[in-house]
Amino acid sequence: MSLHPTVLTDAEAVGDAVAEMVLDRLRSTAGDRFLLGCPGGRTAAPTYRALARHAAAGADLSRLVIVMMDEYIVTGDDGTLRRVDPELSYSCLGFARRHILGPIADASHAAGIAAPTEVWVPDPADPEAYEEQIEAAGGIDLFLLASGASDGHIAFNQPGTARTSRSHVTQLGEATRRDNMGTFPEFTSLDMVPTHGVTVGIDTIAACSREVVMIVSGEHKQDAFARIAAADAYEADWPATIAVECKSPTLVADRAAAGQ
């Protein structure tokens, strides 16, 4: 099944539209928690800003659980794998606290309403536990997705990743690492970018989500838009094409990404 894209004016318009989707699903879903799958980086940043604006206007986002897709890892002196320090700007956990949960919580408190408190991130020492945590919570209610510009990676799933893959530790390819140099300007040389990460798998995204929204913004994402819009099944050389095999998929892009 190929996706029919919704094309909006610019990245901010995309962010506004996706935030409205999040609010709509949140209001129509019962339960103590609403699991929102979130990428780090630039793509979904307008959506996160829009959610904070809604919180400032009184929208109740207290049930949100921010479920991050991945995290950079390092090897400790004892040989164990661990997440990078969340105080580092490129930490996905740190990104979630500073740019997703934090602004929403601050806006909620200012509006006098309850704020969300939870951020989940996979543990490189036990990736399988992330699967269990997500499944025990009933799955991800809405998963926001993003595609690598140059190689189609999704989360840290590299080209060639098996369709059946679940949460795992992976080596990051040069294209993925170069993409992240654009996201984090303090990476002034490739050797500064971590070489490994822990990530949800391709099948994690497809099997553990009720609905997905693939967000594609910017002229540099035209190849990504073309590949995802044309796909009718998962293509391992462009892992972001998994969106077409997910339940209730939506592709939202801005005019720059769509080449309009």
Results as ranks from 00 to 15, higher is better:
222 Q>M: 13
207 A>T: 11
186 E>H: 11
197 G>H: 13
143 F>Y: 03
228 I>S: 02
165 S>H: 06
206 A>F: 06
159 P>L: 00
137 A>I: 10
175 A>S: 09
221 K>M: 10
183 T>W: 01
183 T>C: 08
213 V>H: 12
225 F>L: 11
169 V>G: 03
182 G>V: 01
216 V>A: 12
139 G>V: 09
163 R>V: 11
219 E>P: 08
202 I>M: 09
161 T>R: 01
227 R>A: 11
182 G>F: 07
140 I>A: 02
210 R>L: 08
209 S>P: 13
212 V>S: 15
212 V>Y: 11
192 M>E: 15
157 N>D: 04
200 V>Q: 01
224 A>W: 10
175 A>K: 00
196 H>G: 08
220 H>G: 05
227 R>N: 08
172 L>R: 00
224 A>N: 11
184 F>C: 04
155 A>S: 06
201 G>W: 08
155 A>E: 01
153 H>E: 05
166 R>M: 07
221 K>N: 11
176 T>W: 01
168 H>Y: 11
202 I>D: 04
208 C>H: 14
180 N>S: 04
206 A>K: 11
173 G>M: 08
210 R>E: 13
168 H>G: 07
174 E>G: 01
213 V>S: 10
166 R>Q: 07
188 T>F: 00
194 P>S: 15
188 T>P: 05
206 A>N: 05
225 F>R: 09
149 A>E: 11
213 V>F: 13
201 G>Y: 01
155 A>P: 03
178 R>E: 00
187 F>P: 00
218 G>M: 07
178 R>M: 00
155 A>V: 02
205 I>P: 13
161 T>H: 00
140 I>C: 08
136 A>Y: 06
174 E>Q: 13
204 T>Y: 11
185 P>Q: 04
157 N>R: 02
203 D>T: 06
227 R>I: 06
172 L>H: 02
214 M>S: 14
173 G>F: 03
202 I>E: 03
165 S>Q: 00
222 Q>N: 12
169 V>T: 05
152 G>E: 05
204 T>P: 01
142 L>P: 05
144 L>C: 05
149 A>V: 11
147 S>N: 07
140 I>T: 07
186 E>G: 04
